[in-house]
Design a binder for these strands. Structure first.
Lengths: 114, 114
DNA sequence: TACAAAATAGTAAGTACTTGCAGTAAATAT
DNA sequence: ATATTTACTGCAAGTACTTACTATTTTGTA
């Protein structure tokens, strides 16, 4: 999302710009109750390419929704966790999730993985 | 969003796919408490091109978040309103909005229009 | 000494999303 | 007869977003 991130039209617009994007919601959601290493996230978010995962995590980090902790070991170890702001977003995602669940039931849609 | 809309990885993924996109959130939000004509929406959503607005409204219609009522008059008159599913999404957007508002205050960000 | 492991970085190529611009329809006002 | 109004549609062009693939770092291990 290099997109006019500067041009915010309204508060709702601002909100969606922080959380929008192909993987952000899922990443925040899996981090809701556990700190995860890069590789663990990779396995959790089925379908992400490593490049995309890293890139998305960087954006979340810049926006201060996710924190990154590097352990100086070899092989490398990096842990990702929600920040306070990130945690505050969880109830919101939870609500979307409830809505989505109902929709999927009504429309008889099933999920590919998980 | 022609994007693998078919490939849903999890419930959260499904939810974000319905509401994601550059203008969907804003459109749903302005429709929260009033039925609007195409032209009114156009003025409300600062920055949308007519093409994009139409396209986005079509997607929302297909997803049954928004209803479209055509009056057989000349010049044409078309009204857009939230469906039941669309309305159920409002509390969610409201929550994102509260979060976003806090964030913007903390980060001292201001809005370009509105 | 070559090899594996974990977490990336860089660049080119591909695909999806948006914009811009021209054009349509049909009744009414001029 | 022509202009005006409203809500679009179609297509080409432009921009943003993703993927694919190659490469890097460092230390313990075979």
């Amino acid at each position: 999302m290099k997109n006019n991130k500067e041009v915010v039209h309204c508060i709702v617009d601002y909100g969606f710009k922080r959380v929008g994007g192909k993987y952000k919601g899922r990443i925040l959601w899996v981090l809701r109750d556990s700190v995860l290493r890069y590789g663990e996230l990779k396995r959790a978010i089925v379908g992400v390419t490593p490049k995309m995962l890293t890139q998305t995590l960087r954006e979340l980090e810049v926006d201060e929704l996710v924190s990154r902790k590097v352990y100086l070991e070899v092989p490398p170890k990096v842990e990702y966790a929600l920040t306070k702001s990130g945690q505050e977003l969880i109830p919101f995602i939870e609500q979307l999730r409830i809505w989505a669940k109902n929709q999927m039931e009504q429309k008889n849609i099933t999920v590919n993985s998980l």
